[in-house]
Design a protein around this nucleic acid. Structure first.
Lengths: 170, 170
DNA sequence: CATTCTATTGAGATCGAGTCTCATTATCAA
DNA sequence: TTGATAATGAGACTCGATCTCAATAGAATG
């Protein structure tokens, strides 16, 4: 396995406007198709929320999302954000990540390479890593159980390199 | 990989009284040591809760635990159960499992083989599976990041065989 | 464009898992 | 037994998430 493949990954699309627009269009289409399939509609608010998630370079909590959206659309309601996040989870565009202390955080999954998370219980830092081989064995296990996977969550809790250096024994 | 290794696993200790007592003693000691290290005390309630978790052959929610304990000790309080579960998580004896619809479930980790979970979003059923190869690649990734793992959670959300049979398309 | 049917929205009420408070009680070491 | 301190249970409280409902927006049709 190539160690180079295991690195902290953040979307850099926002820095290349042309590519960002293409990315947005393709993801919007995915969302719209999901909505269409269930007789639901693509509204201004739903698009704004998806856009905010795409522009974010880190995991967002509901409240961060709410405050950031409120700036450009003061009338937006918390309930709409909860409802939209749920829709986005259903169609696999968004996944919940590390809900320590009761506050869920979310990230966009679409068009990003598969990755899992290591969460430091001391400083709270979330490190992303990839392991294609793990995915392969996981897929095998899923198939063998006749299960159809919608999304998955693989979180390793522990202490990160920096915290270990700072205090070798907790 | 041997498919036989991937099967729903439940502790059968409860059916062999002698072994169960030994198991109980060894786990109680682990718990007591953890408490001692922090100047805390092993109380009747804490022992009852641990015992109930050990006797359970499946994942327990707080409420199930509460009701089952209430039968033999009507004065026990919910708060004590929350507090004790937290202590047991801290010393690695108990782990949270699949908190779909807001209700956390817990399982005893001690002396049980490593396993992960597949959670059906339709019927809520939790299927356990093992995949030693996945664990191996995971350990490699952890080591490469200089991380020290305390526990991990690997949950696959999707639809189980039975629900797929019942309603092929959600 | 007007019409109609349905989905969506935001505000605020509501729910409920989990936490906290506090007076009382249990644990344990000396 | 005693004294210091931790633990308990009841119920109040927190606060993230959900629900309700009247008003509004979207899409399809003529």
């Amino acid at each position: 396995m190539n160690p180079k493949a295991e690195v902290i990954l953040f979307p850099k699309h926002a820095r290349q406007p042309r590519q960002f627009r293409q990315w947005l269009a393709s993801i919007l289409q995915t969302f719209q198709e999901h909505l269409g399939r269930q007789g639901l509609k693509l509204t201004r608010q739903r698009e704004e929320i998806l856009r905010a998630l795409m522009a974010a370079e880190r995991h967002l909590g509901i409240d961060e999302l709410y405050l950031s959206l409120k700036r450009q659309d003061p009338s937006i309601g918390r309930a709409t954000i909860f409802r939209t996040i749920k829709l986005l989870q259903e169609c696999g565009l968004v996944a919940e990540v590390g809900s320590s202390n009761g506050r869920s955080k979310f990230e966009l999954k679409a068009d990003r390479p598969h990755h899992d998370h290591m969460i430091c219980v001391e400083c709270g830092r979330i490190t992303e890593f990839q392991s294609p081989m793990m995915e392969r064995f996981q897929d095998g296990a899923i198939r063998r159980h006749g299960f159809v996977a919608l999304w998955h969550r693989h979180e390793i809790f522990g202490r990160c390199r920096d915290c270990l250096k700072r205090r070798p024994r907790g």
